[in-house]
Amino acid sequence: MLDDRARMEAAKKEKVEQILAEFQLQEEDLKKVMRRMQKEMDRGLRLETHEEASVKMLPTYVRSTPEGSEVGDFLSLDLGGTNFRVMLVKVGEGEEGQWSVKTKHQMYSIPEDAMTGTAEMLFDYISECISDFLDKHQMKHKKLPLGFTFSFPVRHEDIDKGILLNWTKGFKASGAEGNNVVGLLRDAIKRRGDFEMDVVAMVNDTVATMISCYYEDHQCEVGMIVGTGCNACYMEEMQNVELVEGDEGRMCVNTEWGAFGDSGELDEFLLEYDRLVDESSANPGQQLYEKLIGGKYMGELVRLVLLRLVDENLLFHGEASEQLRTRGAFETRFVSQVESDTGDRKQIYNILSTLGLRPSTTDCDIVRRACESVSTRAAHMCSAGLAGVINRMRESRSEDVMRITVGVDGSVYKLHPSFKERFHASVRRLTPSCEITFIESEEGSGRGAALVSAVACKKACMLGQ
């Protein structure tokens, strides 16, 4: 009897593995994704193909990295998701002549009506938060230079001027797309009239992360975010950046690689679950690469896999709870928690219980395998993109072996128990001629924006502006 049951459990697990095998990517698959990513990057950089390229390769006008001589107080704003952060950054000489960066910050959550109302409502709310922060720190009387981390696709015309191309991540505030974001912020500050600010720089969160990590390690020339969304930036040779005049030196390019796949480059790798996630998203047909990796989508992918296993009578005796059938019910943090389970399955059992399920031991094991399959594919897909960037940098610099540091931020990278190990191992397999160091950014977005502002202020002083 026991043997029969054991055989049935083994057969069930084997069927589960057959279904989950769809998520496995072979090294040849990853090399294919990497080569296609490089081709799209090239198209994004070139003037004649930029418009139709899915990977936009947006110039950021960040050319210099901090040298350690900029000092002063800077205000930093960070808008990239449902939370908005205001930070005071003091850049100065530390002990023994070292450079020191001290920060104080406060988080504000953005109400739904500000995210989806008008641009005026959104930026009025942001300036209200700045006003509140300055009151708390008794700094209303000071006109501070301000660095703005704005983590949406922007076409820069200068370091302090950028046109919002399109909202992502659930934002829909009308009247912002096609307009200068810094102008919208300046107008809102003017409307309030109770404080003055000098907006000197606007950067993407990947750029802010790279600059913040450069402060720790001067070989950091790539910034990457794996959180709600997924994106990367890197220092490109100016001669390859056709959208900006000049051939000397390097400029940081914001790849906006989340949109890779929007022209069909990933079609052969998309599964039924991916198509369902895409169809029910706020932007169907867009940001397809990001939807395979980002935390906004990972939990939902797992939920759809679990429903398939229920329908195949391989999980929960073929019956799903009402909660499990509800879109968004299986949160991405559950994926991390399930994979963090120590082996007694308590954590998995508790999560499934909150979803109205009474799982068996085998159910718990199957749910864990589903989570591992989805998150491992995410790590491997992400590795193909980064390997594409790094191999490109090595080739354009004609280096036999390139040493490089990548600064990384984002909740999936930082909080998932195995993502970074799987990701690092896969990147290294795909970049055999590179020695890569990964560092995690601390308060990256805010500190990085302030350091970019410090560079901009120093330049302005040198130019006598």
Rank of each mutant, 00 (worst) to 15 (best):
125 Y>S: 07
331 E>P: 11
379 A>W: 06
415 L>R: 12
107 M>F: 09
297 Y>T: 11
202 M>A: 05
228 T>R: 06
133 F>K: 01
327 R>C: 12
153 P>R: 10
134 L>K: 02
47 L>G: 14
175 G>P: 06
285 G>S: 09
403 R>K: 10
173 A>E: 08
261 G>F: 08
441 S>Y: 03
462 M>D: 08
247 D>N: 01
24 Q>H: 11
377 R>Q: 00
173 A>L: 05
255 T>G: 08
462 M>A: 10
150 F>E: 15
3 D>N: 08
134 L>I: 03
307 L>M: 04
453 S>D: 15
246 G>C: 12
158 D>R: 09
226 V>W: 11
123 F>R: 02
377 R>K: 01
402 M>A: 10
226 V>L: 05
2 L>H: 05
212 S>A: 08
192 R>G: 01
364 C>H: 02
254 N>P: 01
23 F>N: 01
288 L>W: 15
152 F>E: 13
394 R>F: 09
276 L>P: 08
221 E>K: 04
412 V>L: 13
60 T>D: 00
427 V>Q: 05
229 G>D: 15
221 E>M: 06
227 G>C: 08
400 D>H: 01
459 K>F: 13
243 L>M: 05
158 D>S: 10
317 H>W: 12
394 R>C: 03
333 R>I: 13
373 S>R: 07
54 S>H: 04
88 L>C: 03
438 F>V: 03
402 M>G: 07
338 V>L: 01
110 I>K: 02
101 V>R: 03
35 R>I: 15
297 Y>C: 12
287 Q>S: 15
192 R>M: 02
132 D>R: 09
264 G>P: 08
340 S>C: 04
86 V>T: 05
428 R>C: 12
353 S>E: 05
96 E>Q: 12
211 I>T: 03
434 C>A: 13
32 K>T: 04
132 D>F: 07
453 S>V: 13
346 K>C: 12
188 A>R: 04
233 C>G: 01
440 E>W: 08
365 D>P: 02
277 V>Y: 09
176 A>D: 14
372 E>I: 09
198 D>R: 00
259 A>W: 12
310 V>A: 05
104 K>V: 08
447 R>M: 12
175 G>L: 10
83 N>A: 11
106 Q>E: 14
199 V>M: 12
342 T>I: 02
259 A>P: 13
40 E>W: 09
227 G>I: 00
